[in-house]
Amino acid sequence: MAERTEQHRERAADGARIPTVIADDVHIIYKVNGGSRGKGSATAALNRMLRRKTAPGMREVHAVRGVTFVAYRGESIGLIGSNGSGKSTLLKAVAGLLPTARGKVYTDGQPSLLGVNAALMNDLTGERNVMLGGLAMGMTREQIRERYQDIVDFSGINEKGDFISLPMRTYSSGMAARLRFSIAAAKDHDVLMIDEALATGDRKFQKRSEARIRELRKEAGTVFLVSHNNKSIRDTCDRVLWLEKGELLMDGPTDEVIKAYERETGR
């Protein structure tokens, strides 16, 4: 049973805070291949598509189950839970990348989802990716040029050489993740969702990332952070949502929720 604190609703009612995301009884269901031994040829799959039939062995996964919460401007909210608990799936729904089977998600402003697996143009240089990434987020060319050096410096890409002028395929996964975060953090977001971005890079970069998230909060944005690193959650977030098996088990102050999570899981 979810412990949804009434203080969030009460503060919204008296006008003290402005809601940025409202999740109202959200259910997300998707279909996966169950490993059927039936006909698996491309021709058979095409025939099933044309006949609008579900492939044999296809099963439904109820990834998010009746999640309800309200996020407010200026908050930094951590999402915790074991692998497969629905954290990343929920963020994709908030970002508008996944449809809800039931329930609704309402957002004020444009949500931006940043994940360590977000696509980058491997054949283009880091410099070109900074430009394209900024444009994709709605920044003007002038804004990107003004913030370009700050993005490069923040990422630390050039600390060991002129990597920003090299193709992205020459980067390590950590370098690519740092540049991706740096591009996203250069813009003031209405709602910024970060999926494991702070899990990459050394402690020095994590500290810079945490400081930038605190700045984003001061600039009246809302930040969501998915991480298995409880220290990053404690250092960055003032509120935590705990999900397990797609259900919201607890929603409250960071220290309170993480202590309950650690007691339950031993992590």
Score class of each variant (00 low, 15 high):
6 E>F: 11
13 A>L: 11
18 I>P: 02
40 G>W: 01
40 G>H: 00
41 S>D: 11
50 L>C: 14
51 R>K: 15
53 K>F: 01
58 M>Y: 05
74 G>D: 09
76 S>D: 04
79 L>N: 02
79 L>D: 08
81 G>Q: 10
83 N>M: 04
86 G>T: 07
86 G>K: 08
87 K>V: 00
92 K>E: 12
95 A>N: 06
96 G>I: 00
101 A>V: 02
102 R>L: 05
103 G>S: 08
109 G>A: 13
113 L>C: 09
116 V>M: 10
124 L>T: 03
124 L>I: 02
125 T>S: 08
131 M>G: 02
134 G>M: 04
138 G>S: 14
139 M>F: 11
142 E>V: 08
144 I>E: 09
145 R>N: 12
147 R>S: 15
150 D>Q: 07
155 S>W: 09
161 G>K: 13
167 P>R: 10
171 Y>R: 06
174 G>R: 07
176 A>Q: 15
178 R>V: 11
180 R>F: 02
182 S>V: 10
188 D>R: 13
196 E>G: 02
200 T>L: 06
204 K>L: 15
206 Q>A: 14
221 G>N: 05
231 K>V: 09
235 D>A: 07
238 D>Q: 10
238 D>P: 03
239 R>H: 10
242 W>I: 05
243 L>I: 12
244 E>K: 11
254 T>Q: 05
257 V>S: 00
259 K>M: 14
260 A>E: 15
261 Y>D: 04
265 T>C: 05
